[in-house]
Design a protein around this nucleic acid. Structure first.
Lengths: 198, 198
DNA sequence: TTGTGAAACCTAGGGGCATTAGGTATATCC
DNA sequence: GGATATACCTAATGCCCCTAGGTTTCACAA
């Protein structure tokens, strides 16, 4: 009956650790309570329910990932920044697979809580400012941001799901993808649909 | 007590329908049994357990998606084939969100069953042959295939998770991404790391 | 027609998990 | 030292996964 000093943050952190170890889908109230040496019911004083817990893990992950990317890209620009950004993204996904997948859930979280989390918002700003070196104007900038996020997330996600056969090391493909992304951003194609002669 | 004519295929199909309606994570033995008008235990005569059912849904989805892509790309080549391929991919994900996410699971399925499923294998062949029009040699071909899968999956996945703000319609970005992918494949960058002068 | 074996389906039950209601202990502040 | 908020607990409900073992139905042959 000794006080364990539980808080929503501590519960969330243990949930995040568990997610990385056994997968997000196995993060259960019972498992978190067990690890904290506490009964299931006790968690409900700090966290609304399982969905809420998962949302908090997602927010935590978004914050951590953003910080990691910010640190990696600080003081760099152009291609160097792009590579640092991408490697930080992939590195986070590798180090924290459970947290990373939490990031992917549609986020039906308490709006008040979401508002206090700087992660997602700052992540977007970061990406935009990083890509500004490529001198794209809207709406191309937005498209470029989306393309980049798609590619990075898709790669990391397929990699985690075992989607790449072992015929060629994923790392080699990764480097080529970054090359490709860089040259693509440098030579962003003009619209070719409307008014394309020949 | 009337026979319902259950088979593994029927159970899988109902599971897939359920997945599209309520999300893969809510596909439960009980829910499938309810929809079939049968008791939970009856399903275990056809499907080993819940994981097995999910694996079968994944395999079904892979097959369906492959067929859809094959039909869309049949008789086309080059840019047209690329666009048809990508649109078929995205279309399947839109029409069958639950099945599509099933595709993403690491697949710990009965090897004997997996061997009989042509989907995944054929999907790879299809992609390779579609990209052959861009005249890439190995290992660039493999890298290109992986990049394309990453981008398509990433886009569709972010889109489904509500990852794109409503500032710009996703469809517009999608078209630009296909443009980008196409020009990228046409001007696949040479290696720039080793021996790049200037 | 009837017997037989294989499926198809059932009842019963154990065990895990999520969640709520309501109780007891503990720290804090006057 | 008592009031109060808070941390944690016990108890109970209900859903879900899964197993064991029984019963009904079907196809087919004697």
């Amino acid at each position: 009956m000794a006080r364990m000093g539980l808080t929503a943050e501590r519960v969330t952190l243990v949930g995040a650790e568990l997610a990385d170890e056994v997968g997000l889908e196995h993060v259960t109230m019972s498992a978190v309570a067990r690890r904290l040496g506490v009964k299931d019911a006790s968690l409900y004083a700090h966290v609304r329910n399982l969905d809420d817990l998962r949302g908090r893990i997602a927010l935590l992950a978004a914050d951590e990932k953003t910080i990691r990317i910010a640190e990696a890209t600080a003081g760099r620009s152009g291609r160097e920044a792009l590579v640092a950004y991408a490697n930080a993204w992939r590195g986070y996904a590798h180090d924290h697979p459970g947290r990373y997948t939490a990031t992917q859930t549609p986020m039906e979280i308490d709006p008040e809580l979401a508002a206090r989390a700087a992660g997602p918002r700052r992540a977007i700003e970061l990406t935009y400012s990083m890509l500004r070196a490529y001198r794209l104007d809207e709406p191309d900038l937005t498209d470029a941001v989306r393309l980049m996020r798609s590619t990075l997330h898709g790669f990391v996600s397929l990699e985690a799901a075992g989607g790449f056969a072992h015929s060629r090391p994923a790392q080699a493909t990764w480097l080529r993808c970054l090359d490709a992304l860089h040259t693509l951003l440098e030579h962003w194609p003009e619209h070719e649909h409307e008014g394309d002669p020949a």
